[in-house]
Amino acid sequence: MAAPLARLKARTDYVDEVYRVLVDAISEGSLAPGTRLTQEDIAEQLAVSRSPVLQALRMLKKDGLVLDAPGRGLLVAPLDADWIAHLYQIRGSLDSLAARLAAEKRFKLDKTLIANGRRASKGDDVKAMIESDVAFHSAIYVASGNPLIAQTAHNHWVHLRRVMGAVLQGSGQRKSIWDEHAAIAAAIADGNARLAIELSERHTQIASANLVKRISEVLGDESGVAR
């Protein structure tokens, strides 16, 4: 395993917590594509029994984050550039719809969302960067007033977190991402639905193109990028 996992505090039900720890490790890159995973290793590092680890790994496999490894155990699934592009097409449609609905209400997003995001982008905590990005877009989903947008988007965020993490680890585009977020928030607050849609679509298109390009450059085909 590429990096040690922190032991969990004692409690009765570990499944969800083990799942979150592994998702974070995959998203942050400490569990890179192709890394072999076994129940025994994970249980030992987290200081839990094998049962919750087994259930968490089943959840990850269902999500498509891990695959059966040759022989024994599982491995972290490779990143697929074409699949990422498809994923961002869905995200773009949802983000644009949410931005339009929020703009029609002239919704003013909490300014701390932008401030926290800019602060996180200047540091080295990839998890904090991802959480800030998710918080910003989630706030727009809520502002839209349509609960189905957040519900639908939630199904894809586990994968979006992963590809975002692969890029944010060494990206020089962190500042521009939050400049784009600030522009979207301003358009929504001004009630300019057309501009909010345009900016949201452009933001998603730029993110998708940069992700595919960056992942290919950083990881390469032999390091877990499928085509």
Rank of each mutant, 00 (worst) to 15 (best):
V18T: 11
Q169N: 00
D95E: 15
A226N: 11
T35L: 00
F107A: 15
L101W: 02
G165I: 12
V15A: 13
T12P: 02
P52E: 12
K61G: 09
K62F: 09
Y88E: 10
S208I: 01
A185V: 05
A77C: 07
K213A: 14
Q89C: 02
H86N: 11
H181Y: 09
E222T: 13
L5F: 03
A47E: 15
G224E: 02
G29W: 03
L160V: 10
L97T: 13
G145M: 10
S208A: 14
K127S: 08
I140F: 04
I197K: 12
R72Q: 15
R227W: 12
K127L: 04
I149C: 00
A135E: 09
P78A: 02
M129D: 06
H203V: 01
W178C: 03
G220I: 12
K105M: 05
K111C: 05
L211Q: 10
S171D: 04
V212C: 07
A120F: 06
V53A: 05
A207T: 14
V212R: 09
R119F: 04
W178V: 06
R58M: 06
P52V: 14
E222D: 15
V15D: 04
L79N: 01
A115K: 04
Q151H: 13
A143D: 06
L101M: 13
A153W: 03
H86L: 09
I177E: 13
L101E: 14
S171E: 03
V126Y: 05
H154S: 14
R36Y: 07
Q151M: 12
F107H: 15
W178D: 06
D110R: 07
A166K: 00
A193W: 02
V66H: 01
A153P: 00
E217F: 10
G92D: 10
E217D: 12
L31S: 07
L37I: 08
H156S: 11
A102N: 11
N210Y: 08
R50C: 03
S132L: 06
A143S: 06
M59K: 14
A3Y: 09
A226R: 15
A6F: 03
V163D: 05
D133C: 01
R202D: 09
E180I: 00
A32V: 04
H156L: 15
H86D: 15
S27G: 11
K9T: 13
D16M: 09
D41K: 14
P52D: 12
W83L: 11
V134F: 12
A99Y: 01
L31I: 07
T152K: 04
S144Y: 02
N210C: 05
E28K: 04
R91K: 13
D41M: 14
Y88I: 03
R194K: 15
G191F: 04
N210A: 10
K111R: 13
Q205L: 13
I26Q: 06
P4W: 09
W83Q: 10
Q205W: 12
A103V: 07
D124C: 08
V142F: 05
A182R: 04
S132P: 00
P52R: 11
Q45D: 08
T38W: 01
I140S: 09
N155C: 04
D125R: 10
V212Y: 04
T35N: 03
N155E: 13
I149M: 00
Y14N: 11
I114L: 15
